[in-house]
Structure formats: C-alpha cells, structure tokens
Design a protein around this nucleic acid. Sequence first.
DNA 1: TTGGAAAGTCAACAAGACTGCCCTATCAAG
DNA 2: CTTGATAGGGCAGTCTTGTTGACTTTCCAA
Lengths: 170, 170
Amino acid sequence: MAETMRVHTLGGEDLLFLTDEQIRRGIEAMFFAYRAFTADPDLILAGMDYGRAHHRALHFIHRDPGLTVTSLLAVLGVTKQSLNRVLRTLIEDGLVESRVGRRDRRERLLHLTAEGAALERRLSEAQRARMRQAYRAAGPQAVAGFRQVLEAMMDPDTRAQYQSMKDLPE
Amino acid sequence: MAETMRVHTLGGEDLLFLTDEQIRRGIEAMFFAYRAFTADPDLILAGMDYGRAHHRALHFIHRDPGLTVTSLLAVLGVTKQSLNRVLRTLIEDGLVESRVGRRDRRERLLHLTAEGAALERRLSEAQRARMRQAYRAAGPQAVAGFRQVLEAMMDPDTRAQYQSMKDLPE
DNA sequence: TTGGAAAGTCAACAAGACTGCCCTATCAAG
DNA sequence: CTTGATAGGGCAGTCTTGTTGACTTTCCAA
C-alpha cells in the first residue's frame, strides 16, 4: 500500500489519483453509481414477474439475434441453470423465440419476438435516459475517460469479448 | 431516441458520445466492469461463510467508525432485516463490535475489531489492486472523467451523501 | 457403429434481498 | 409521569438469482 501513498508529495499533483484514498473514493463511486444504474429498469421489472437477469438476457439477445445459449452463457458469466430459468419464462411468455439450429441441431438460436423487443426497448430506454443525462452533465472528455477506466478494469477475456462486439447499426 | 441519434452528423464528432449506440456501449462497459470489480473480494469471501453484503458492511464501518446502525442502513440502501443478518454474524464472529451510545443509549455504535479491520484490509486491498491497475493504465485525465460520470449517474440524495463523505486520513 | 463430448434441460439448494408484524429500550415533550 | 416517537432487534415467509450435479439429445470422429 505504501507503494502508492502520498505519491503526489513527490511527483506533483498528477499522481494524487493513485493514492489509496483516491482509489477508495473510486470504489465507493462505483458502488453508488451501479446501484443507480440498475434502479430504473429494476423498477419497471418489479411490476412484472421479471428481474434483472431477464433484462440482461433481453439486452444481449437484442444486440446479437440468433446467438446460442452457450454464447449467451459466456457473455453473462453465469451458469446454465441460472440462465435457463430466466430463458424458460421468457420463452413461455412469448418474449423470446428459441429456434433449433440448422447447422447443428443441438444448438438453440435465440431471437426476440416483437413483444420481447418492445420490452427490451422500454427497459433500455429507461437505463439510457440516466446514462445520457450523466454523459451530458460530464461532457465528452469525461465520457472517454469513463470508458477507458471501465475497460481497464475488466478481466482480459471479458475485455476482448467487449471490444469485439460490433456496434449495432441503428 | 431519435433526439440523440446521429447527432454527430449535424454537430461534428464531439457529440458522437451521445448517440444511443455509444450510450449502449457505456451500459455494457458498466456491466462488465462491475462484474470484475466485485470478483476479487467475492473470491476471498467465498471460502469463509461471508458474502458481498459482509464486505460492504465492513467497508463502511471502517470508513466511519462509530456510525449507528441507522446510518449504515442509509448508506447501504437495504432494509433493516437484510443488514441485521449480516451484522449479527459479524458481531458473533468478533469482527465488529457494537457499543451502546453514550449520548443516546438506544443507538448502537459500530466499530471494527482488530480481526475485522484485518479482513477489511485484505478485501479492500484486493479490490484496490484492480482499481489501481486500471487507474494506472488509463491515466489521471481518464480517472477524473470516470469519477465525474459516476457522480453524475448517482441519485441526487446518494450523490450528496457521497460528496459529504470525508476522505480518510491515512 | 459406437463412444465421447457438446448443447441444453431439470431438480434441489443457498445467499441475500424484500415485506409485514411484533417486541424492547430509550428519549423527549406535554 | 404518561405518551408517542425513535433505535434497534427478531421471526416468518417470499422472491430472485446464483450454485452443483445428474440427465437427454445430438453430433462427430475413431
């Protein structure tokens, strides 16, 4: 710890950001911000019989229609059963469609139905509204820094996955 | 949505950061980064009979020794019962001490024991190591932006609470 | 053709959040 | 000194979301 303590007294104010106390502030900011980040969609979901896990599934099926259960598993980083329960209710309720793979019939290719897409849009828009407001308040430079730090924080495998995700055409 | 779509084609590249797609990328970055953010302490906790909730309690008791149960409740944003379960085990196991308030004897003032402080340090250091590495990789400007966006994302009440927290003297 | 591996499903369980209700101790104000 | 509000704690029950482990179906390669 001593390694990074009070570095600014040696090297100038630039390195204040590496003191344990500044890092601790970042940790707390992360905790509080994440809570807010999930609050809006959670509120919408609360009424229905769904939760945060359903939102995440809808999000990634939307971003990559036709992905397999296994790929979704990898992106979400949960176990099969955890996802399965969520997926089953989404399919039963007609929000997600699971088509048998043509190439490999063991695979199930996941798509949103019109209804699923509608819910995804609603949840997404609630979450985006908060982000948009934060982005606007902080400005483009801050946003660039925000993204850089988040990327640097990810596990290398996750980062590679994240970076290789294509932007959605609008 | 159309409101912020392709704004950069009108106003120049500066506003690319406000397109829905860029905001969506930020949302995903937030999700992936938060998962990494909690992974290290979770791994340590997994062995013991504790979880993420215990970590959070230890963290905030460490940052503000002698705080009351009610204040901790407010900071964590959970219900009494939820916190109580966690707090009870921590007290039973001798990591946290609960002293009757002198001014108001209804209050319980929470402190870490030496053992509690040791665990807090261990968890904290695991989490800080990742943050420190991310901060170093991204640089001071990025860190400033990171913090700005996170603050802007919080609920106003939380933000006020966050901003009024004092830095710990080292 | 057959045996292993991969994809997906299901059953049972645990952590951690929630609500609602009840209890005690203490304080402060009429 | 009573009475109402506040701080804290506890019990019962529920929900979401995570876990492990065992099972079927399907594919592919020896």
